[in-house]
């Protein structure tokens, strides 16, 4: 059996070592990853995928630890992917989300993986989607994806998860301003963590006020749950709400969302394929460098240059 077949079989059998190796392949060898994902794809689609996003310091990792415990109490197996930023200057990363989850690491029903963004924009890594599929194929019932500390634009998570939790905490200053614009709109559930602090109610009211501004008729109104992640207070209620949202999705929207997700992934795959093949061809024919020079010399602007090159290409 080839090395990759061994890994595929291991993933499908839920072997932890092989799951770990598979995620490394997804992160570092795109060609091998393609085969791997193609082989396991028919075995995916069973897990419930939850995305957790919000500003740094709101308590994402601590909350996840408590959520995992609650799911374990309910007899579910859980996968966690915790994403932290890569330094754009050195390419290195400090992955510290596990600090809050380490007691879970010896539970055989839990698999936790830290992942660096490797400079992918949008709050998750390029390989996060594949890692979710790997954990799904490996039979995890619930998969939780923690994004990097998010502000306005870390919304890639909607392409990965079915239920999005946006977490906020009192005393984080004006982050609420930041989450208004972007991540606010993707929330299926809001969590106000550190609810034992003063101003927690104000944070709840802020979110409520924002939700009321949006007066479009919606089939699902995002609930606001107060939690204290350190003690676990409010977590069972949060899990109930996630369950409710899941049932709602199944009834109303799951198929539509699945189609949207499939569309986004297909478009991205086509883009990548087309872009790299065109650029490779242009480079091979030395036209790429020539145009680069012209752009630098201000003979042509980048957008017009791209159009010109593509027109020649598509004729």
């Amino acid at each position: 059996m080839s090395k990759i077949d061994e890994i595929i079989n291991g993933v499908l059998a839920g072997n932890r070592r092989k799951i770990a190796k598979a995620i490394t392949i997804a992160e570092s060898s795109p060609e091998e990853a393609k085969n791997l994902i193609a082989s396991i794809y028919p075995h995916t689609g069973k897990a419930q995928i939850i995305g957790l996003t919000g500003p740094g310091g709101a308590g994402k990792s601590t909350l996840i630890e408590k959520m995992v415990r609650e799911y374990r109490r309910r007899g579910k197996t859980v996968g966690v992917i915790a994403v932290d930023p890569t330094s754009p200057f050195t390419g290195g990363a400090f992955l510290g989300d596990r600090i809050r989850m380490q007691e879970l690491s010896t539970d055989e029903g839990v698999f936790i993986r830290s992942m660096a963004t490797r400079n992918n924009p949008g709050g998750i890594a390029k390989a996060t989607k594949d890692a979710v599929k790997i954990l799904d194929a490996a039979g995890k019932d619930v998969i939780i994806v923690e994004t990097v500390g998010a502000g306005q634009s870390e919304v890639e998570i909607i392409k990965v998860a079915q239920t999005i939790i946006v977490i906020h905490a009192p005393g984080l200053g004006d982050e609420i301003q930041a989450i208004k614009a972007g991540i606010m709109e993707i929330a299926d559930i809001f969590v106000v963590n550190k609810a034992d602090r003063e101003n927690a109610d104000k944070a709840v009211m802020d979110i409520q006020a924002m939700l009321q501004l949006d007066n479009k008729e919606k089939p699902w109104t995002p609930p606001i749950i107060k939690t204290v992640a350190l003690t676990g207070e409010g977590v069972p209620k949060l899990i109930e709400k996630i369950e409710e949202h899941w049932q709602f999705l199944k009834k109303e929207l799951l198929h539509k969302r699945s189609l949207e997700k499939a569309e986004a992934e297909l478009i991205e795959a086509i883009k990548e394929k087309v872009t790299s093949s065109i650029i490779e061809k242009l480079k091979r024919e030395k036209r790429f460098e020539k145009v680069l020079q012209q752009i630098v010399e201000r003979e042509i602007d980048p957008a017009s240059a791209a159009e010109k090159l593509l027109n020649q290409e598509l004729e």
Partner: peptide, 24 residues
């Protein structure tokens, strides 16, 4: 330029080895 996983204080040998495995 490396990806460094840090797990905090007071780790048992079991936790360390299991983390090394999951994080590959």
């Amino acid at each position: 330029g490396m990806e460094v996983i840090y797990t905090g204080l007071r780790q048992t040998p079991e936790q360390i080895v299991e983390t090394a495995l999951q994080e590959d």
